[in-house]
Design a protein around this nucleic acid. Structure first.
Lengths: 342, 342
DNA sequence: TAAATAACTGTAATCGATTACATAAATATA
DNA sequence: TATATTTATGTAATCGATTACAGTTATTTA
């Protein structure tokens, strides 16, 4: 109701200046213990709360950080965000979450919006659909707003990134399928202009070649990370003259679509076709037929991304070499690919 | 790099005052057309961008709005948020999303955090675990920060709310099961101190009574909205002397747990037991056995909540009667409850 | 032509917190 | 005792945008 109390109100009441009050509240060592106590008590009495907007104006820091992800209703991104929040909240930051829904237009809009909100930094996983252009990222960098990529990254000078070793993840997934006796392993990829998807693909390919199997490019299909798209792609695969005996999908959602399509044709999993997904979404564990998937330690990814941001903020203008953190993926083996036990 | 340009820079360049620049940029009618143009052009040339922090300090508005939900990795909340964003972004607001994970402690922390960020309003779905106390909400109200509940609400004077008609939803779900010939319908409820859960329960109960069936309180179990909890509760139900022939769950996640438990015992769905969930999460559609569920038009709920907030902000201090918007639920019937066709 | 009005623009205070610099009082040093 | 050094606080500018009020022309009216 009544106006908020400011340091001026406190100052007037104690017959001192706002400067002294400010210093006392901020623990400036030049303030005598007696007045410090007095000020603190009075502040409490008067329900003083610092006006963050004023402080922000003065310091040029908003203590807001933007996080941009393709979508928030995936467990993976939700957990990354949780990790980010955990670290940043503790440092007094607020997190503004934006979704791109994999549309470049929205990505640009989001960046504008965050810039507008004068965020102190941006942590993001880039959108799928996208030109080769980096102007948006450049705009952030030019303004000295730290930008950190996680998961879906691009190699841009001056931008740190936190990912898992996607090549290794792809390699291990394929190797696992090969170990199960699969010979024709298909791959539901995603936009391979995005590094992580390309790396998963490359790892998968390498494993096939390393094992002396034939690599068939026609078994690789790019799809969006959606159930329907997974089904669609699987239709194509199953209709081939020599259909695959395994599918490694770089998305759990697409894998789910694949499973639906396969089951609808009465083909057995894992006996006839083995399935491996990616991201370890909870439903992979909860399904009647639990799905093998790759865990990306999203919580950890979020925490580390936040830490990288904090480091960059601290270092201020000093240009530091962009940090590239690579986490270890973990293949979680479940029934959908356990031919040996079926 | 170089400092940001301010209205003072523009003023200096044009040999006028910052006041004039400010007025020109804001379309003040007292400014001559010529200078207005000149200012606008120069602003563009110099890459001028308004400092929102300064404006926020002056106006007392941060143009930040807080949204508090139990979790973001559920399709329901993700869509509500999307609806909110849609409306608020268009009005120049930013949205700060917070999760409570159904912990009162985090809820309080979130509110503090948002208050700290000087948000212009808070839209929230209250957390489950909770005392009867409303002090946190009162704190917002005392500061004249509009608070709007959606979905999980409480009746508090001065707080508007947007929900679906949960009583009707519960009633229709139960009626549907009765129509399928079910006689002993169990209910996986949730904390019934939360209105929406109590209303679903009451609707369910009323339908049973209206149809002359016996109402058995022991068939009602409170569980959290989690897969594991759903399984656990279902174990109890199936171990009863007279197990139910249908389960109406007020959560899709708990329903999923129920289905797992039921299937693991070799009991058939829907022949032996029918299942109805709640929230129309995507997986209900994608499962091998698609699950009947209640749609709550989350997008619409978000949009309307945002609109209610905008209305309250506009009206300013004038106390307006708290608005209570009630949306219509829609029962989406799928195989899990279609005994008649099985 | 003098007075009144309109049309612009400038002056300066304001939002609330921070901080370099100045100053006063208290204490230490020679 | 006179000077140097601390210690504690006050003064005033600053961050950038907004706006009530005042002031200056230019235009209109009597």
């Amino acid at each position: 109701m009544s106006k908020k109390t400011t340091i001026y109100d406190i100052a007037k009441k104690l017959n001192i200046t706002a400067a002294t009050v400010s210093r006392a509240l901020n623990g400036n060592p030049k303030i005598s213990e007696s007045t410090r106590q007095l000020v603190n008590e009075t502040a409490k009495e008067m329900n003083y709360e610092q006006n963050k907007l004023a402080q922000a104006l003065k310091s040029g820091k908003s203590y807001n950080v933007g996080v941009i992800v393709p979508r928030i209703d995936s467990n993976f991104f939700a957990l990354v965000i949780r990790g980010i929040e955990e670290v940043l909240y503790a440092k007094g930051y607020h997190v503004i979450i934006c979704q791109t829904h994999d549309q470049k237009k929205l990505e640009i809009q989001n960046i504008n919006s965050l810039l507008n909100a004068q965020v102190d930094g941006v942590l993001m996983s880039i959108s799928n659909s996208g030109s080769e252009e980096n102007e948006n990222f450049d705009r952030l960098l030019k303004k000295n707003v730290p930008l950190i990529f996680f998961d879906r990254k691009k190699d841009i000078d001056g931008i740190s990134a936190v990912t898992i070793d996607d090549f290794k993840a792809g390699y291990e997934a394929a190797q696992h399928l090969i170990n199960q006796g699969c010979k024709r392993i298909a791959h539901l990829s995603n936009n391979r202009k995005i590094q992580i998807f390309n790396n998963r693909y490359l790892g998968y390919k390498q494993a096939i070649l390393d094992n002396g199997l034939e690599f068939d490019e026609s078994l690789v299909i790019e799809t969006a990370s959606k159930v329907e798209e997974g089904s669609k792609a699987t239709k194509i695969l199953l209709d081939m003259e020599m259909p695959p005996d395994a599918i490694f999908s770089s998305s759990d959602f697409a894998a789910l679509g694949a499973i639906q399509e396969i089951k609808s044709r009465g083909i057995r999993i894992p006996q006839d076709i083995c399935i491996v997904g990616f991201a370890n979404e909870p439903f992979t564990r909860f399904m009647e037929l639990p799905v093998t998937s790759v865990d990306q330690s999203p919580l950890e990814m979020g925490r580390i991304s936040a830490q990288v941001f904090l480091d960059e903020v601290d270092k201020g203008k000093k240009k530091i070499p962009n940090k590239q953190v690579v986490l270890n993926p973990e293949l979680i083996i479940r029934k959908s690919s356990l031919k040996s036990e079926a």
